[in-house]
């Protein structure tokens, strides 16, 4: 089971750190690491389903995921603290970078270094996929839903909304409690 609810300050600080350190993207991987793997605030299924919910709603996926986690832990205050924490660091970072961008560009291999950071950040996402896939393997319908979503969106490039609208209900139906 998940641990007792963390404080508003703890939620703010976790997302503040994620916002400020998450170079190269892959923020969902950071949140998974901090919230599920290290702090056990949420369980894996809860996290992944909240993520699916956040992706079909408009808005930056990471902002929606932050609101999901914050609301789940501490209601409105938790969601607001998480979102503010997530955005305040990058807000100033992006302005500072805009001021110093020409200088950064003149550094040799700055772009290559960013490519390398971005690739390493994808590693955080692969961790989620590996864990989620392993637990999906326990249920054939979950394994099928995982593979179908991945193939349709990632390989066939079909509309995310359409794929979730078709695969989501089928997958939920397969998981529905018997006799309910």
């Amino acid at each position: 089971m998940s641990a007792p609810s963390p404080s508003i300050t703890a939620i703010f600080l976790v997302f503040f750190r994620i916002g400020l350190l998450s170079f190269g993207g892959g923020l969902i991987g950071w949140v998974f690491r901090e919230v599920v793997l290290i702090r056990h605030w949420l369980e894996e299924d809860e996290f992944l389903s909240g993520m699916a919910l956040g992706q079909i709603l408009p808005g930056a996926n990471i902002a929606n995921l932050t609101i999901f986690v914050g609301q789940r832990l501490r209601g409105l205050a938790g969601a607001a603290a998480g979102l503010f924490g997530l955005l305040v660091g990058p807000f100033f970072a992006v302005l500072a970078l805009a001021a110093g961008y020409r200088m950064l560009q003149s550094l040799p291999h700055a772009e290559d270094a960013m490519e390398g950071v971005a690739a390493a950040a994808v590693g955080l996402l692969i961790v989620i996929v590996a864990r989620g896939a392993r637990s999906a393997m326990g249920r054939p319908s979950a394994a099928l839903a995982f593979l179908a979503t991945f193939a349709a969106v990632g390989i066939m490039h079909w509309s995310l909304l359409l794929v979730v609208a078709v695969v989501g209900p089928l997958s939920v139906w397969a998981a529905w409690p018997k006799g309910a």
Partner: peptide
Amino acid sequence: QGLAPVGNG
């Protein structure tokens, strides 16, 4: 449980 593998996909 149904949406988790979709999110992971």
